[in-house]
Design a protein around this nucleic acid. Structure first.
Lengths: 237, 237
DNA sequence: CTCTGTGAATGTATTCACAGCT
DNA sequence: AGCTGTGAATACATTCACAGAG
């Protein structure tokens, strides 16, 4: 039986908190697969993912019943199911906007390509940057986003511009048909319904840490290891 | 009256979800201050922070009663109170470990210094990198972490190493007295009690986005998943 | 009348604990 | 026996809705 809340369109949906953990389980499963481990229990998977066993079982139960009682989960099969649920059965080409320090680093960061998110396009508003290449990909002008998205089948945009330019870039991305945006600019961007935005503000993360740092100083233990942020999926609609 | 749950040590504590939003409010308040706005209502603050007004009021009520009924909040005062609660009345020097693409970009990223987190030390395990300078800060060997932390008063560590090196670096950081860690390595790291860890895995963010993207595009294609056999597809429900 | 602050109500998420399969 | 899958219980978070201050 599949639990979950009915989505807007009547489909059963997986709780957001569980969705945010699936990529972590997937990462662990890939690691296990690479060490030729064939079976894993919820307890072991939990330890490797930094959560508890009951949560693992509940999360996985949203995808179906793939475990074997008394034994555990088949690593390869579970990996397939988690990947499928996350839509990772094919690559998702991405476009990075803004090629300052962070944008350039992201473009050069091999981890994206390796995990199924090839960087297929780069855009910037600065004419001095347009025409150059970063990580082997030419930088094009942000005004060409419509054509770029159409010709490359890009579905995810990464915003690494200064705060002041972010809303404009996001508007262009959405107009071009991009439905998911990862925003590194330190500003809240507004989008039309149906567009998912995830914000990663590095300074925000540090500020949360300094809050908890203060609490530790008197020597008080029992910190609820913040771990993965609960999910800042601002899904408009 | 101060709400909140009693913490482990008997102190009233602010819910984790509220703590995670305080930095966003702070960012908005700084922006308002720079435009010489003196007063802000929960409704306006909510719009700028991308949440709803009731949440803003509830969150702020954990810090105390700083609003004026019928008017709103004094921007400058509220900014002070939020900053104080986050422990941002002084700078928090940070150390970045791992100077590959990401680590170097973070070191060069001006946003940290600007927001009260000056990058005071850089460490790497690669002798070829030790001795070089990045963003005007010399790269030192990771084995020198003890001295570095002691002499610079560093309380926060940023891990930008490959996954395989992360646990070792974290252990060294904790041993050196660092109590808060921002981990960019795609792996769950274990620490002693009392150490806060926040994970930022860029690939995880993208994977969450692709999950939601799929929901928007009915009839998504199911292509190859390298090295994985489909197994049986048993989607219950 | 406007807008805060907050109890009460509702909605989500986590954890417990155990039935049921291997 | 060992381990999953899942209702029930608990804990946490959000939203409602309104009393009360200005």
């Amino acid at each position: 039986m599949r639990a979950g809340n009915p989505g807007a369109d009547g489909y059963t949906s997986i709780p957001a908190a569980a969705v945010a953990r699936l990529p972590v389980y997937r990462r662990v499963l890939l690691e296990l697969l690479s060490t030729r481990t064939t079976t894993v229990s919820s307890t072991r998977l939990a330890a490797l993912a930094g959560v508890n066993a009951a949560k693992v079982r509940k999360d996985l139960s949203y995808l179906g019943s793939f475990g074997i009682r008394g034994v555990g989960y088949n690593v390869e099969h579970l990996l397939y199911e988690v990947s499928r649920e996350l839509g990772l059965t094919h690559d998702w080409p991405v476009c990075i906007a803004g090629l300052g320090n962070l944008g350039s680093a992201l473009a050069n960061y091999g981890g994206f390509e390796e995990r199924g998110y090839p960087v297929r396009a780069l855009v910037d508003a600065d004419p001095a940057k347009v025409g150059r290449e970063v990580a082997g990909v030419p930088v094009r002008h942000v005004e060409a986003l419509d054509e770029i998205v159409a010709e490359s089948g890009i579905a995810i945009g990464i915003v690494a511009t200064p705060a002041g330019a972010a809303q404009d870039v996001v508007d262009r991305m959405v107009a071009a048909g991009i439905g998911s945006i990862l925003n590194f600019a330190p500003v809240v961007v507004n989008t039309a319904d149906g567009v998912s935005v995830r914000n990663v503000d590095l300074a925000v993360e540090l500020q949360v840490l300094s809050f908890y740092q203060r609490r530790h100083v008197p020597g008080g233990p029992a910190d609820l290891l913040p771990g993965l942020s609960p999910g800042r999926v601002a899904r408009t609609g």
